[in-house]
């Protein structure tokens, strides 16, 4: 049973509001190690320089989108095992299917609740303490 405080999370979204919302939700769960990035490229750069075990990323971003980021992570051995949860809009089935093809761990639709996000994280890591 992993402790929420042991999670190191990277939030990738081009929208500041969304980054703030995810960050605030994570903080309410007891996660304190949270970094963020404004697009896939910056996210990837961040992943290469710090320890992260969960990436929560938006899909549609400039430069490098969420799928691109996911694929880059999965194909680079040192970070390939990082858990990845994709943030999607409602009714984005096509995207979820493609993300699954590239090994996404889970997805969450916007708008989400704190409980909803926690559930999605727990589906990946097991119950958080």
């Amino acid at each position: 049973m992993p402790a929420a405080s042991a999670l190191k999370v990277l939030v990738v979204d081009d929208q500041m509001t969304m980054r703030a919302l995810v960050r605030s939700s994570l903080q309410q769960m007891g996660v304190s190690d949270i970094a963020d990035a404004a697009d896939g490229e910056l996210g990837l750069q961040s992943l290469l320089t710090r320890q992260v075990n969960l990436v929560i990323s938006d899909f549609n971003m400039p430069k490098l989108d969420g799928l691109g980021l996911l694929r880059a992570i999965r194909s680079h051995a040192p970070i390939a095992k990082t858990a990845f949860i994709m943030l999607t809009g409602r009714a984005d089935k096509d995207l979820v299917v493609r993300a699954a093809q590239f090994g996404v761990n889970n997805y969450i639709s916007k708008p989400f609740t704190v409980a909803g996000l926690r559930e999605k994280i727990e589906e990946v890591f097991g119950a958080l303490t």
């Binding site: 042991a6 990837l44 750069q45 290469l48 320890q51 075990n53």
Partner: peptide, 25 residues
């Protein structure tokens, strides 16, 4: 540890993000 966090590469190692993305594609 209990949660596996991949170690970031040694600072001397410079990784070209663009190359990584191309490689992934």
């Amino acid at each position: 540890g209990e949660l596996e966090a991949p170690a970031p590469p040694a600072s001397a190692e410079i990784i070209d993000v663009q190359a990584l993305i191309r490689q992934a594609k």
